[in-house]
Design a binder for these strands. Sequence first.
DNA 1: GAAATACTCAAGCATGCACTTGACTATTGC
DNA 2: GCAATAGTCAAGTGCATGCTTGAGTATTTC
Lengths: 115, 115
Amino acid sequence: MLNQAPDLDRVFQALADPGRRVMVERLSRGPASVSELAKPLTMSLAAVVQHVQVLEASGLVRSQKVGRTRTCSINPTALRSAEQWISERRTLWERRLDRLGDYLAETANETPEET
Amino acid sequence: MLNQAPDLDRVFQALADPGRRVMVERLSRGPASVSELAKPLTMSLAAVVQHVQVLEASGLVRSQKVGRTRTCSINPTALRSAEQWISERRTLWERRLDRLGDYLAETANETPEET
DNA sequence: GAAATACTCAAGCATGCACTTGACTATTGC
DNA sequence: GCAATAGTCAAGTGCATGCTTGAGTATTTC
């Protein structure tokens, strides 16, 4: 059962932590084990495992255990859904600005000498 | 002093709350007062003010007080910086996948009959 | 098969977050 | 000027988060 519904709360929450972003950054270059993810971070392995769990719960990361090592990799779908949410609001706002600009330009044309 | 450094921690943290996302959604359609932002939400005005403060601290929203009303509006820069961070990781990952695909295709060509 | 590796689990703790209530201040409208 | 409106401030509460430590469990490796 993959977390296919793009739970934005959890995705943004997951991305809000700098350590977790470092992990996502690492994973965007390719799959990695938990201890590889832990290397650049100054915290216990147990803490890293907890972060991985948060990332998995958000759907940003998937992992599978082979032997004694758990290999993590990025799920671009979750990344894309967050990106899309932001992009939609931003373009909405920019389109509004454009319309406002048009309106102001028109108004200036209609009453060019006023005041 | 605008929060020009795009403090991703705070931006993603701000977006992680559903109520705050509703506010951003509203603001993407144009500026609004604090009580307008409060309308669709079932919480006290004081709570809404606190959310606005979080949004401002993240740089996602700016506001100014005229008379007794505070008018909030979106700052697309912060939105863009978050969007960009995600987009960069995602495309990195997708490029990696492409290279992997190329490699697999090449390998298949070089040893087409094996096994 | 013993030691090292790679997690995993549970408990505990300090701090942060999302609220609430109650009191207070500054504008606006009549 | 008095009431309604719009927001502000401070304190308090309960739950979530980000860690830690210590102990335990599979796998590898030698």
